[in-house]
Amino acid sequence: MALSFQATLTQASWVGVRLMIGYRALDEGAGPAFLGLLASSFALPALVAALPAGRAADRRGGTVLVFAGLLIAAAGILSMLLVPGLTVLLLASMLVGFGHLLVIVGQQSFVAHVSRAGSRDGAFGTLTAAASVGQLIGPPAVTIIASLGANGNSARPDTTLGLLVCMGFSVLALPVYFRLRPIDRNLRRLRRTGTQEIQSAAAIFRTPGLWRSLLVSGAVLVTVDLMYAFVPVWATEQGISATAVGLLLALRAGISVVSRIGLTRLIARFGRKALLVVSISAAALGLLALPLVGLHGAVIVMIGLGLGLGIPQPITMAWVISLTDASRHGAALGLRMTVNRFAQITLPIAVGTFAGPLGVLGIFWVNAAVLAGALVIVAGSATGKSSIPPPTDGYS
């Protein structure tokens, strides 16, 4: 429960910062090109630092990385508050992105090391469900408080207040370290069996079957980014309000949270491959249908997308872990994040460039084709049907 509490707070802070930094850039006079660069800056640190961060988690423990990441993210937020200017804002966003990277890799590594082989799907399901709860509570909490200081101008919230709320979330998450660190230290002592060989990224990637799990993970995660980027375009064409868009996306996130409850039992009954095939198929069908429906049809689509995008993420995490040695779990998860971030940076640009001229239908259908490719990869894989003892969805 302690880690779930921490994951909720850190995700609430993260999504809140991503909202407030955009408004702050507009206050500084930023244009569309800078806003695009700002959005990419959060993901850039993972391209070079995710794998080293994973190795550090294997050596030092995931809790140390989380604690450092929270401090670094708080320093980035503080620099935004104290020093004006777009250049500082860009550098600070990279600092926040780097801190968030350490937090995510650290939390995932801790789960990988503390959970038993048969309960990892459920443990990762709990972690990602807690993160989704943070994504649900963060935006309204930050924007409501920021709007209180905006003197009635709801279009331009008080970003200083909003960023202070984000920092508060990060500070509240820090004490959890002292609860989890002794567990982490004991686990590392049990795992220590001598000097471990440090493998290169290429060597880890060549682990039999690992590339399949990484590509499927990247395809699913980038769909979430594409949805946030292009659902407003669909809504504009349909004459649907921004408030309705927010509620639809909140519905999608809420269904994702629910889909991760009891995931261990589902995998015990049906196996990872079956759940991946069904959930990714639901997401692909939802993307095919979305350009063709209105508001009421979109409700059904978002339920399908919530299931289709909620279930694969914890399963692919556990899939990665099942293929690698315990001493390299952190490195493998770091490599997974590197692939995810690379996909998040490149695929939206590619889809927007090549499918953009076809309009909303082309964008969502190309995204559906990406998920269809992930289905082909899953069909040819051996994800395994977890041999799970009496189910447990939680971890301390």
Score class of each variant (00 low, 15 high):
Ser4His: 08
Gln6Tyr: 08
Leu9Pro: 03
Leu9Glu: 00
Leu9Thr: 01
Leu9Tyr: 05
Thr10Glu: 06
Thr10Met: 03
Ala12Trp: 04
Val17Lys: 01
Tyr23Glu: 03
Tyr23Gln: 01
Glu28Ala: 14
Ala30Lys: 04
Leu38Met: 13
Ala43Ile: 04
Pro45Asn: 02
Ala46Asp: 01
Val48Asp: 00
Val48Leu: 15
Arg55Lys: 12
Ala56Cys: 04
Ala57Met: 04
Asp58Ile: 03
Gly61Trp: 05
Gly62Phe: 00
Val66Phe: 09
Leu71Pro: 01
Gly76His: 13
Ser79Thr: 12
Leu81Asn: 10
Val83Gly: 03
Gly85Glu: 10
Val88Trp: 14
Leu89Val: 00
Leu90Cys: 06
Leu91Ile: 10
Ser93Lys: 08
Leu95Cys: 09
Leu95Thr: 12
Gly97Pro: 01
Gly99Ser: 04
Gly99Asp: 02
Leu101Val: 06
Val103Gly: 00
Val103His: 05
Val103Lys: 04
Gly106His: 08
Phe110Cys: 03
Val111Asp: 02
Arg116Trp: 09
Gly122Glu: 02
Gly125Tyr: 08
Leu127Ile: 10
Ala131Met: 13
Val133Gln: 07
Gly134Trp: 06
Pro140Thr: 04
Ala141Trp: 06
Val142Thr: 07
Ala146Ser: 04
Asn151Ile: 13
Ala155Val: 13
Asp158Leu: 07
Thr160Val: 14
Gly162Ala: 06
Leu163Asp: 05
Gly168Arg: 11
Ser170Cys: 15
Ser170Trp: 13
Leu172Trp: 09
Leu172Lys: 07
Leu174Lys: 02
Pro175Leu: 12
Phe178Gly: 01
Arg179Cys: 08
Arg185Ser: 12
Arg189Leu: 11
Thr193Ser: 14
Gly194Cys: 09
Ile198Phe: 11
Gln199Val: 10
Ser200Glu: 06
Ala201Asp: 07
Phe205Met: 14
Thr207Met: 03
Pro208Met: 11
Trp211His: 10
Arg212Lys: 11
Leu214Met: 10
Gly218Asp: 10
Ala219Phe: 13
Val222Arg: 03
Phe230Ile: 00
Phe230Met: 01
Phe230Arg: 08
Phe230Asn: 09
Val233Ala: 13
Ala235Val: 14
Gln238Ile: 07
Ser241Asn: 06
Thr243Asn: 13
Ala244His: 14
Leu251Phe: 12
Gly254Asp: 02
Ser259Gly: 10
Ile261Lys: 03
Thr264Asn: 12
Phe270Asn: 03
Leu276Ile: 12
Val277Ser: 10
Ile280Thr: 05
Ala283Met: 05
Leu288Asp: 00
Ala289Pro: 00
Pro291Ile: 00
His296Thr: 11
Val301Cys: 09
Pro312Tyr: 07
Gln313Val: 15
Thr316Gly: 02
Val320Glu: 09
Ile321Thr: 12
Asp325Trp: 06
Ala331Phe: 05
Leu333Thr: 05
Leu335Gly: 02
Leu335Arg: 02
Arg336Leu: 14
Thr353His: 12
Phe354Asp: 03
Ala355Lys: 05
Ala355Ser: 08
Val366Gln: 06
Asn367Met: 15
Ala369Cys: 09
Ala369Gln: 05
Ser381Asn: 02
Ala382Met: 06
Lys385Asn: 09
Ser387Gly: 10
Ser387Glu: 13
Ser387Gln: 11
Pro389Arg: 13
Pro390Lys: 11
Pro390Asp: 11
Asp393Ile: 12
Gly394Leu: 14
